[in-house]
């Protein structure tokens, strides 16, 4: 089947890539664009490891076709740090031990990045429901929630 050229913004940079229609966004990000921060977990839209920001919303990139990203904007974990400075969420995950094996971390970071824009001052319960689409198989949820909470506090406008 003929390949199609698609163009979208990846981490604020324009990219063009030749794809098959059946290719999933996560595969194109990792294999063609060499952005391997986005992880493939369950591939069935349950675990959230592949969460990226797509046109200002969190999505599971294992269940979005790459061709659907044509003309859109995608932000991955590679785009969080700015000029070598970690995002406050990345700092908080480090300080609060919000990761154990680290496999779920890119998804956790990308979901919490969007979640804190939807709800900048969340309660613990709101964090838990806002992050309900991301699983941590180390079950390190306590410190993930703690990290999101402390990042929220740091990100509050003074």
């Amino acid at each position: 089947m003929a390949k199609k050229l698609i163009a979208f913004k990846l981490n604020n940079q324009p990219v063009e890539v030749l794809i098959e229609a059946r290719e999933l966004l996560v595969h194109v990000l990792r294999e063609q664009l060499a952005q391997t921060g986005t992880h493939i977990g369950c591939e069935t839209s349950h675990c959230g490891a592949c969460t990226v920001d797509f046109n200002g919303e969190s999505v599971k990139s294992c269940t979005v076709l790459a061709i659907q990203a044509n003309g859109g904007e995608v932000l991955t974990v590679e785009g969080l740090a700015q000029n070598g400075t970690l995002h406050p969420l990345q700092e908080a995950f480090m300080q609060d031990h919000g990761l154990q094996c680290g496999f779920c971390t890119p998804g956790m970071l990308m979901r919490s990045f969007r979640f804190l824009q939807e709800n900048p001052d969340p309660t613990e319960e709101e964090i838990r429901s806002g992050m309900a689409g991301n699983l941590c198989r180390c079950t390190g949820y306590q410190n993930i929630v703690k990290a999101v909470k402390s990042a929220a506090a740091k990100m509050q406008p003074a």
């Binding site: 839209s45 969190s58 999505v59 599971k60 979901r111 979640f115 309900a132 689409g133």
Partner: peptide, 9 residues
């Protein structure tokens, strides 16, 4: 229904 990411789609 499902979770936040799935509800976005």
């Amino acid at each position: 229904i499902a979770d936040p990411q799935v509800r976005n789609r």
